[in-house]
């Protein structure tokens, strides 16, 4: 790890003023579970670390009876898991899937959203877009078993590593951001972008902006669930995941649906068509399978990850059945 100076602001205004004008000069420290590992591998080499844990307002967590919620950036994964167990099952289930008790105690909500990709080429020092010295992309002809099957026509082939993002998208949540120009909000699905150059980041944040929290709109009557297909139960990221949020009328017909996929594309993937095809139908094995197929209709697997198409379909099916309370 390179040397760095360490700043501990106590307000978000101070924090933003301490951040750099360009990416990489400074990094924000919250849980530290990703950042310190990146720094030990010299993938992140900031000259200044801004520890935001002294900013008290970022730790607040409010969930109202109608399901609307305000989750501070520093709320830990463990706190989120417990607090949303009844109110937002999709979110709680996604939090439960995150790594280990230690990580859930340390890791934060904003950290889950802003963690860098787990692509092994990136982590080994070949840059965000995984290029060799000659500028050739390493992923297409390399070991791409965990890489993107959707949204992979651009230069970014990693998958977004956030566990919470698909659930937050299904719940129509927004990311709250604070910067030198004040506060702004952006839908979670628009917060993530596929980078075009290795100097870019995977999120629509400026280098001197800070994620301050998440807001979830009221979700009365919403049924939600997350299903992750995993190799290991713990300490690893899912191979594919789906979060769904649906509303049913008195006849159990779907009146609204949102489906978001995780770990399949450089951004969390919103399966709009798969969701809209459910409207007016009841959730059954048949309609859930059909939605899974539609969700992956545009998939273009790389040389070693076609298996993820099937896993993704299963994730969508099982998440829908779980949300509707039907045992698979």
């Amino acid at each position: 790890m390179n040397k760095f100076e360490y700043a501990s602001p106590t307000t978000k205004e101070q924090a933003v003023a301490m951040l750099g004008k360009a990416w990489g000069e400074t990094e924000i420290l919250a849980g530290g579970t990703d950042l310190l590992s990146l720094m030990k591998d010299f993938v992140a080499t900031p000259q200044r670390i801004v520890n935001i844990k002294g900013i008290k307002e970022l730790s607040s967590l409010q969930i109202l009876r109608d399901g609307s919620a305000r989750i501070g950036a520093l709320v830990t994964i463990d706190q989120l898991l417990e607090a949303t167990r009844k109110s937002h099952p999709a979110l709680s289930q996604a939090a439960a899937g995150i790594a280990s008790p230690q990580i859930r105690n340390m890791g934060t909500v904003a950290g889950d959203l802003c963690q860098r990709p787990r692509c092994w080429y990136y982590r080994a020092g070949f840059g965000l877009l995984a290029r060799n010295d000659a500028g050739q992309a390493l992923v297409p002809s390399g070991d791409n078993r965990y890489h993107a099957i959707l949204g992979n026509k651009g230069p970014a082939l990693f998958v977004n590593p956030s566990s919470l993002a698909p659930a937050l998208i299904a719940l129509a949540a927004k990311v709250q951001i604070f910067g030198p120009d004040g506060a702004r909000e952006v839908e979670v699905e628009k917060f993530f972008v596929a980078p075009q150059s290795s100097a870019d980041r995977e999120y629509a944040l400026k280098s001197n902006e800070l994620v301050t929290g998440i807001s979830i709109p009221k979700s009365t009557g919403l049924l939600s669930a997350t299903y992750e297909v995993r190799q290991r139960e713990v300490l690893d990221w899912p191979l594919a995941a789906a979060s769904v949020a649906i509303k049913l009328d008195a006849a159990k017909k779907v009146t609204s649906a949102r489906i978001a996929l995780g770990h399949v594309a450089p951004t969390p993937w919103v399966a709009t068509e798969a969701a809209s095809t459910l409207i007016g139908k009841t959730i059954s094995e048949e309609s859930a399978v059909a939605a899974g197929k539609l969700a992956t209709a545009g998939a273009q697997p790389l040389s070693h990850n076609a298996y993820k198409v099937q896993l993704t379909q299963v994730a969508v099916k099982r998440a829908l059945l779980a949300a509707a309370g039907i045992s698979a």
Binding site: K3, E5, A7, S8, P9, T10, P180
Partner: peptide, 14 residues
């Protein structure tokens, strides 16, 4: 910008 950041403790790199 940094000069205006009163009240922020900065430690290190030493």
């Amino acid at each position: 910008a940094q000069a205006g950041v009163a009240g922020v403790t900065v430690i290190g790199p030493e």
